[in-house]
Amino acid sequence: MLISSVHFLFIVFMVMLSLVMVLVMVVLIYNFVEYKQSARTTTWSGIINQKISDAIVYDKDEMPVNPQFNILALRKPFRNLFLQRLVDSEKKFSGAAKNKIRDLFKEYSLRDVAMDKLSQKKLHLIAQGIGELAVMDQKEAVPKISLFLSHPSYQVYLEAQYAMVRLKGFEGLYFLDILSAKISEWQQLRLLLSISSLPPDADFAIGKWLESTNDSVVIFTLKLIKKFQLLSFYSKIKELLSTSSVEIRIKAIQTLMSLENPETVAYLSTIYNEQPDDVRVEILRVIKWSKDHCCTDLLKKELFEGNTSGIKVNAAQALYELGYSGYLSELSGQEELSEELIQIVKYALQEKVC
């Protein structure tokens, strides 16, 4: 019985030892493969970087011949890495250097590599391919990229939106007509930076987007109006100050101020009482920024009667910016005022509240 138990334990020990040895071998093989791939990538990156440098420095007929590069350029992994390095380099250069990088893209038919990614199942590869085509200004890929505007993957359709605008400019924004998803702040910035000019008939589309049921589309459109100083939309923006979205109202106020109409501050003071508290705070901020004295009575009233401390603070700060520091100093010495109001006034006067 004892011998059987010892024999069983020995077998268990040998099995466990074998498993450990197998695991060690797997880890070693994995690390070796990773090392080989890393070493290969490092070597290839050096060759690719040299090729890009030569292309930028030399004219086409003076380019040093590199047979090794041409052989490697036939291999799919190398072509993928080459494309990635070209995209990274394109973002760093401008002018003639950028054009030479794009010439390499065409010379080695790397468009095929990027297009192939659009048919992959892995979402990050699809998004990567779309981005590469956009960076390399492949306008002929627009019909294919447009199919991804309704893709269920957030990552993919964001890249498709950006690519459409980068490749087609303002005309690429047509997806806003039916967009239901929210456009993030970062995406809005990317889209805005990709639009350098507006077509003559842009007003029709912009007017339609201002009426969108998607708040983020309206907000993006307001930023577009601000960027290109579209004064013709002044009246239409004023209409947004009665919309249900507080965020849109605030953005509308900021856009109105950017259009620099001398009547804006006075107009905002007339609708002040109709606005929710957050919008009132924004109006007080623009009054402070504008330094328009037409609203002095409103500021004094809100300092005493404002619904929130935030409103009172902004009213006090606006009065200070308008040159009413003497008035505020007098208030700070009136003991009959509430402690909160005295602290707010002192804060506006930039005094230390004890």
Score class of each variant (00 low, 15 high):
158 L>K: 13
146 S>R: 15
153 S>W: 08
146 S>G: 08
163 A>N: 06
180 S>A: 14
157 Y>H: 13
161 Q>G: 00
193 L>T: 10
189 L>I: 10
173 L>A: 04
199 P>K: 05
154 Y>Q: 14
166 R>Q: 11
165 V>N: 03
188 Q>C: 10
150 S>Y: 13
166 R>Y: 01
173 L>K: 03
187 Q>M: 14
187 Q>D: 12
157 Y>V: 05
152 P>T: 10
184 S>G: 09
147 L>D: 12
155 Q>D: 11
181 A>H: 15
199 P>N: 05
168 K>P: 02
147 L>E: 13
180 S>N: 12
160 A>Y: 00
160 A>K: 05
188 Q>L: 03
199 P>C: 05
200 P>M: 04
191 L>S: 02
194 S>P: 01
189 L>A: 11
146 S>W: 04
160 A>T: 00
186 W>L: 13
179 L>S: 05
180 S>C: 07
182 K>P: 06
150 S>H: 14
201 D>G: 03
200 P>S: 07
173 L>I: 04
171 E>Y: 09
165 V>C: 00
200 P>A: 06
165 V>H: 03
192 L>N: 00
172 G>F: 05
197 S>K: 15
156 V>S: 06
148 F>I: 04
183 I>P: 07
183 I>F: 07
151 H>E: 10
162 Y>A: 12
193 L>C: 09
179 L>C: 06
153 S>L: 08
151 H>C: 08
164 M>Q: 09
170 F>T: 00
191 L>E: 03
183 I>L: 15
169 G>W: 00
166 R>I: 01
147 L>S: 13
158 L>I: 11
149 L>N: 04
195 I>Q: 04
